[in-house]
Write a protein that binds this DNA or RNA. Structure first.
Lengths: 146, 146
DNA sequence: GAATATTAGTTGTTTTTGTAACTAACAAGG
DNA sequence: CCTTGTTAGTTACAAAAACAACTAATATTC
């Protein structure tokens, strides 16, 4: 069987990215899932609020490029656990402003510390310049710089 | 004084990788999904067989780091569509050897061409050296080099 | 200022995934 | 051989994601 010129599944960027993403999420996922009972979209919402301040579901969805139903359900569960509060917006009564409760702040702080450590640990596999370049390329692929 | 030193969600590797993976998969996914009615694991199985030759479900699972139930279901659907055949192995009658049918070969060839083009197109966003480095780093993160 | 279109968010239904338990074949160790 | 353990793959059931239809508030247009 002829060796297939040079295209290989393991070099196909979408495939490779998915594998890397899955692998690198694994350990962190175990923490927010097993230890805090959070779903992926839930920690994302938590982080958006903790890191960028109060905002609406719509804003989070736009930033995280996540569908509104996913956000809606994540918000419900977070509110149920008293990690966030929802206050109907004055100027637009369809929207509600989301904010972390003290409990939510606490969980955010802890998870953030863990995330920082984890990120630093992943980063140790690369040289300083490589890490910077990698992130730049990923941001480009993710369309975050547009 | 800035409250959030320098850690940012958009630089957190697991998050960034997921965003990049999702974004970069989007267009290709539309093709295998809408045009060929394939699920993600299904095209992966197809590609493994097309690219590396006949093998068992277990082998595919190991290579693609995918759980056996996912593979099992993908194999079922592919067999149902007559894209692959399953032949019980002589030496171990638990396992079955999977192989592409001519129809499966055809779909593989087409999808592969599309993948190659798509990959090349993504690659155009980077310089030659960057693309090589990116893949190297991703392979490292995905644990494919271990 | 009604009639129409949009937008923020929710709910219901269908697919897909994850997890555990299962069958059938094989592998040792005694 | 025969008990015990392991492995390839399937199936059943629970959790999560995708998609469509919905409500209620706000914009727009004529």
């Amino acid at each position: 069987m002829a060796k297939n010129d040079e295209f290989d599944l393991q070099n196909f960027l979408p495939y490779l990215l998915n594998q890397a993403a899955e692998q690198s999420s694994l350990e962190f996922q175990r923490i927010y899932k097993d230890r805090y009972g959070l779903l992926r979209t839930e920690w994302r919402v938590l982080f958006h609020l903790g890191m960028y301040g109060d905002m609406t579901a719509k804003e989070i969805g736009a930033r995280a490029m996540t569908h509104k139903t996913k956000i809606s359900r994540a918000v419900s569960r977070l509110a149920q656990r008293r990690y966030i509060t929802r206050t109907r917006s004055e100027n637009d009564r369809r929207a509600e402003l989301l904010a972390l409760t003290p409990a939510g702040q606490g969980v955010y702080q802890e998870l953030r510390r863990i995330a920082e450590d984890y990120d630093a640990r992943l980063d140790r596999r690369f040289s300083r310049g490589e890490g910077v370049l990698l992130r730049m390329m990923l941001r480009r692929l993710a369309g975050l710089d547009d």
